[in-house]
Simulated scan of single mutants.
Amino acid sequence: MKSKLPSVPYLVWAVLFIIIPLGLVVLFAFTTADGKFTLENLMRVGDYTAVLMRSLWLSAIATVICFVIGYPLSFIISRAETGGQNLMIMLIMLPMWMNFLLRTYAWMTILEKNGLINRFFGLFGIGPFELINTPGAVVLGMVYNYLPFMILPLYSVMTKIDKRVIEAAQDLGANTMGVFSRVVIPLSVPGITTGITMVFVPSVSTFIISRMLGGGGNLLIGDLIDLQFLGNAYNPHLGSAISLVLMVIILLCISIMNQFDTSEEDMESMIL
């Protein structure tokens, strides 16, 4: 009989940092300040539907842009020589070694009215443009910070695609688009679903990016939750209710994406 002792630390970690915090969120969401049961907190979440829809919309746009950029880039990296792959992956990961806030502050400097972009356009007598405190700036911040989360899972899956499979498809008469649509894309579905999930989830719940690049006019659901816990309108019960609704939405999105996820062996058998 195997000992259960090695699993004890993981169980303690899960209880302390997952189960108890989630339990407190649920408890606060369904209680009032004096501890009485209520559904009012969840009903008030409907007042912020516009903020929630804005968060979902901007996060979806950022996820699509990350996919459009990350998919071909991941394929190019996966087909390069080993040394070239390591170099390109390092360059992609290099910004991640810097503090998240510093990276976002850098974009504030670039996008502000007297920033580098407006100064460049000023050389030609153009501008200044309103680049910061816009939804576009928020999406740009999401794409810049979360693009590696799209590239890495795609790259890890694409490196496992045997070059002989692609060569066989070409020998059988498939053109470039045929190889991509019938071989590369089906075999990379697990990386696609993982990349979309890893970009969408932190994007929809972010608050630093929207606060620093979006200004007060582009409030997202993460900012709203932050204000309920740390702002002047301190209301942890409403904040917990909003967090609970957001958690349910994220879980639904993940479950939908999992419906499209297929194991590598199944995809290969379908192609064959």
Rank of each mutant, 00 (worst) to 15 (best):
A14G: 08
A80F: 05
M96W: 12
L58S: 01
Y144W: 12
Q170V: 11
T31N: 07
Y105Q: 10
T82W: 06
L219F: 06
G217Y: 10
V157S: 12
V12S: 01
G216C: 05
L22P: 02
F180C: 05
I221N: 00
T159F: 06
I249V: 15
G84N: 13
L5P: 02
G178N: 13
L27P: 04
L102W: 12
K160E: 13
F121G: 05
V248I: 15
M150H: 05
M212A: 08
E112C: 10
L272H: 06
T38Q: 00
I92F: 09
V184W: 02
L219Y: 04
M96T: 09
I192C: 03
L42M: 11
I126A: 12
W57P: 00
R54F: 06
T262A: 15
S205Q: 07
L11K: 13
T32N: 02
N235M: 07
L147V: 14
E167D: 09
F129A: 03
V157L: 11
P21C: 09
F121T: 12
S55T: 11
E265S: 11
F207W: 11
L94G: 11
I92D: 01
M150K: 08
I271K: 04
G214C: 06
M198W: 09
P148S: 08
G35K: 14
L73Y: 06
K163V: 08
I132S: 02
G35W: 10
A60P: 02
T31S: 14
V12P: 02
S255H: 07
N133K: 09
L154T: 10
M158Q: 07
G83F: 11
G141H: 01
R119Q: 13
G191Y: 05
F180S: 01
R211S: 12
G217M: 15
M270I: 15
E81I: 09
T31I: 15
V184P: 01
M212Y: 02
L152P: 00
D266V: 14
Y10L: 14
N133D: 08
E264H: 13
F180W: 11
V51Y: 01
L140K: 05
N99F: 09
L251C: 04
G216S: 10
A137D: 02
E40Q: 14
I196M: 14
Y234H: 10
G122H: 04
S210Q: 08
A50I: 06
P186K: 08
S7Y: 15
L227N: 07
K36Y: 06
I117N: 03
L5Q: 06
L94A: 14
I185E: 04
S55I: 03
S203E: 01
I196H: 03
T262H: 10
G83I: 11
I221C: 03
V143H: 00
I126D: 00
T176V: 15
F75I: 12
A241R: 03
G231L: 05
Y48W: 12
G70E: 02
F28K: 09
T82I: 10
P202K: 06
I132R: 01
L39K: 03
I18P: 02
A80G: 10
N235V: 11
P153H: 06
P72A: 08
N232H: 08
M96Q: 13
L230Y: 11
G23V: 12
I19S: 02
I132K: 04
N175K: 12
N86A: 15
E81T: 13
L24G: 04
R182F: 08
S3Q: 12
N218T: 13
L230R: 13
P186D: 03
S263V: 07
E268M: 14
P6R: 11
T194A: 15
